[in-house]
Simulated assay, not measured.
Amino acid sequence: MWTQEIQCRGNESQIHLCPTLPSNENNCSHDNCVGLVCTDRVNVRLVGGHSRCAGRVEVLHRGQWGTVCDDLWDMADAAVVCRELDCGEPVDALGAAHFGSGSGQVWISYVMCTGSEFTLKNCGSEGWGKHNCNHTKDAGVICTGKLLPTGP
């Protein structure tokens, strides 16, 4: 357990590069432990559509962009993509490379979102790189493009 107060500015690339304030007494216990969760900055994007909220679904995995197979692709899956991109609600979940064929890896297939996940990576699937698919079956999404108001 560190006994120093960490004072990160936010531009450090590693936590040990953050300035610290020395502590003269160790009054910390494991009840004071903190944690954090890190994610990729951008995990999903839409390519080939008429706006940033429509297009072929591509996901970032191991530093490489790849596509999503349209097997079992539905509106629940589209809802997660739209939410992750701050693009409102899904209008359509498309397959058969509606927005053109991608290139590189087909990263995921048989995506099984409930629709409540925050990111596509949180949805079930056959596994990264496991598929019987090609780019003629790339999945696509059309979102409303804006968040819809909730409540009265």
Rank of each mutant, 00 (worst) to 15 (best):
A139D: 08
T3N: 14
N134V: 04
V68P: 02
N26D: 15
G129Q: 11
H61E: 13
Y110A: 10
S13G: 14
V80I: 02
E89S: 13
Q105A: 13
C82Q: 06
D138R: 04
L72P: 00
W107H: 14
T136F: 12
D138W: 08
H30V: 12
A96K: 11
D71C: 10
E5K: 12
G63E: 03
T136E: 15
V57Q: 03
S101T: 04
S109D: 14
A97V: 05
Q4C: 14
R41C: 01
K121W: 15
A54L: 02
G88F: 05
E117N: 05
G63M: 09
G49Q: 00
T136G: 14
C113E: 03
L72G: 00
G102A: 07
R45W: 05
H16C: 12
R52A: 13
G55Q: 08
V59W: 07
G100A: 10
V68Y: 01
I6M: 13
P90W: 06
R56N: 02
A93F: 09
V42S: 01
L147Y: 01
G63R: 12
N27K: 04
D40L: 13
V141D: 12
S103V: 09
K137V: 00
G124R: 14
W107N: 09
N24V: 04
V81W: 09
R62F: 00
T150N: 06
V80R: 11
H131Q: 10
K130W: 08
L148M: 07
I6Q: 13
T39V: 13
T136V: 07
C28D: 04
Q105R: 09
V141T: 08
C53L: 04
T136W: 14
F99A: 07
G55K: 02
A93C: 07
L147T: 14
S109Y: 01
G100P: 12
A79F: 03
G48W: 06
E25S: 05
G100F: 10
D138K: 15
N27V: 04
V59Q: 08
R41H: 14
H98L: 03
S103N: 10
D40Y: 05
H16Q: 15
M75N: 01
V80E: 05
T20Y: 03
G35V: 00
M75T: 05
G124L: 13
D138S: 07
I15C: 05
G49P: 01
C123A: 02
A96Y: 08
M1G: 08
A54Y: 03
P149K: 10
S116E: 12
K137Y: 14
L94H: 00
H16P: 03
A97W: 06
D138N: 11
C38D: 02
C82A: 04
H16D: 15
T67W: 01
L60M: 15
G48H: 01
T3W: 01
L85W: 07
T119S: 13
W128S: 06
G63T: 09
M1A: 09
T144N: 08
L148E: 15
V34Q: 13
L94V: 05
V81S: 07
G63Y: 10
H50P: 05
H135I: 10
C38Y: 06
H16A: 09
S23V: 01
R83W: 02
R83Q: 11
D77Q: 02
S109V: 00
V111K: 07
I142Y: 03
V47E: 04
D70M: 03
T3S: 11
